[in-house]
Amino acid sequence: MEKIARVFIIGWDGAGNFVKAAHTPNLDRLIRMGTFGFDAQTVSPTISAQCWGSLLHGVGPDKHGLTNEIVSEDTYPENSPYPSIFQIVRDSVPDAKMVAFSAWNPINHGIIESSIGVHKVSMNDRDLSLAAAAYIRENPDLKLMFIGLDLPDAGGHQYGYNTPGQHQAIEETDENTGIIIRAIEETGLLTDSLIIAVTDHGGGGEHSHSHGSDHPSDKTIFWGCAGPGIKPDSPLQGDFVITDTAAVVIRALGLTAPSAWEAKLPEGLFFI
C-alpha cells in the first residue's frame, strides 16, 4: 500500500448533491475508486465564504468569522487560533509546495492566509483547470493543492438549482475535473495521492435561484475521497460535516490537527 504523498481538493461550488442527476463520468470514476456520500452536510449559513472557510479552517462560521463581504476585503488573520490546513502544513513542513487555484478569488484572497507561501491563481473555470493541470505536470513534488470551480453555483443562480440548466453546468465542471485528473494520472501521481471531491453548499431550498437557508436542498452536499488507505467503491459512513474535511487532509499527510479545531475524522474512512 502506497503512503499518501500529497492531497488534492477539487471543489465544485454550489453543486449540492445535484450531481446525482447529471452525467458526470469523471466524478463517477472517483466514486468507484473511493469512499463517497451524497448526504453529507454543510454549515449554516449556507454561503460560500462560511462554507469554504469551514472546510479549510476546521471550525464553523461562529469561530472563523468569515463572510463573503469579509473575504472580499480582508485577509485572514495570521495569528488566528483556527489556522487553515495550509498553515498547518507550512508549520509542519516548511518547504512544502502548496497551491490554490480558485475561480472565486476571495478564497485565495481572504480565506487562505496571505503570507505563508501558497501559490495562488484565479481565472475562469476552463482556463483554471488547464492551468492547474499544467502546474501539476510541472510540479509533481507538490504537497497540497486546492482547486475551486464555480460553474455549478453560477448555473444555479442563473437557471435555478437542480434544474437542467444547472445540470449542464455541473457536466461542464465534470469535464474540467477530468482535465485535472488526467494530469494527476499522466504524471504518475494517482497511486500515492488523496483526491477529495466536495461541494460547499446546494441551493434552491427557500428560493429556487439562491441559497443560504437551512433547507435540506441548501444544506446537503456530496463529499468523497479516493487514494491509498481509502476503501474503494464504498459509502461514506456516519454523519459527515464539511468541516471534517480539514481533519481528513491533516490525517492523510500524517500531521497533527490543532486542538481548537472542531473537525473530526470519520470512523472507518482510512483502513491503514
Rank of each mutant, 00 (worst) to 15 (best):
V59Y: 04
I221W: 06
R29V: 01
G178F: 03
F222D: 02
G254A: 02
D233V: 06
T24M: 15
A132Q: 05
D141G: 11
T256F: 00
G178S: 08
V43H: 01
A100D: 08
I111C: 08
N26V: 11
N17W: 12
G148V: 08
L194I: 04
K264S: 12
A96C: 09
G205R: 06
D239Q: 13
S213M: 07
A169D: 13
H57A: 13
T46P: 06
W104Q: 09
L144R: 03
A226H: 12
L144D: 06
E206R: 14
T191R: 14
T187Y: 03
G110S: 11
I230L: 11
N68P: 02
V198E: 07
H201I: 10
I88R: 02
N79M: 09
A246E: 11
V248S: 07
T42F: 10
L190S: 09
S48L: 01
E138S: 14
C51P: 05
W52M: 07
P216F: 02
G148R: 03
D214Y: 06
G148K: 04
S259L: 14
T173F: 01
Q237T: 12
L149R: 07
A40Q: 09
T191W: 03
N105D: 15
I242A: 13
E2Y: 11
L194H: 02
N162W: 05
A260M: 10
H209D: 11
G16C: 05
K120G: 02
G254F: 01
R137G: 13
T75G: 03
I184D: 00
D174N: 05
L66R: 01
S129W: 06
N105T: 07
N17V: 07
D244V: 10
V118W: 05
I31G: 01
H201N: 13
P228F: 06
A226W: 12
S259A: 15
R137Q: 14
A197Q: 07
A183H: 11
S84Q: 00
W104L: 10
A134H: 14
N162H: 15
R90N: 08
K143G: 01
V118C: 06
A247Y: 11
N26D: 05
D127Q: 12
L269S: 01
I184S: 02
G188A: 12
L144H: 04
S102Y: 02
L130K: 14
I272G: 15
D150R: 13
F36P: 01
L236N: 08
F222M: 10
L189Y: 06
L190D: 03
L149E: 10
H211C: 05
P235A: 07
Q166S: 10
L27M: 14
H57Q: 10
E175H: 12
R6V: 06
V121L: 13
G160K: 10
P61V: 05
G178N: 04
E69Q: 13
S84G: 08
G34Q: 04
I147R: 05
P232I: 13
K264G: 03
D74M: 12
A49N: 08
D150C: 07
D192M: 08
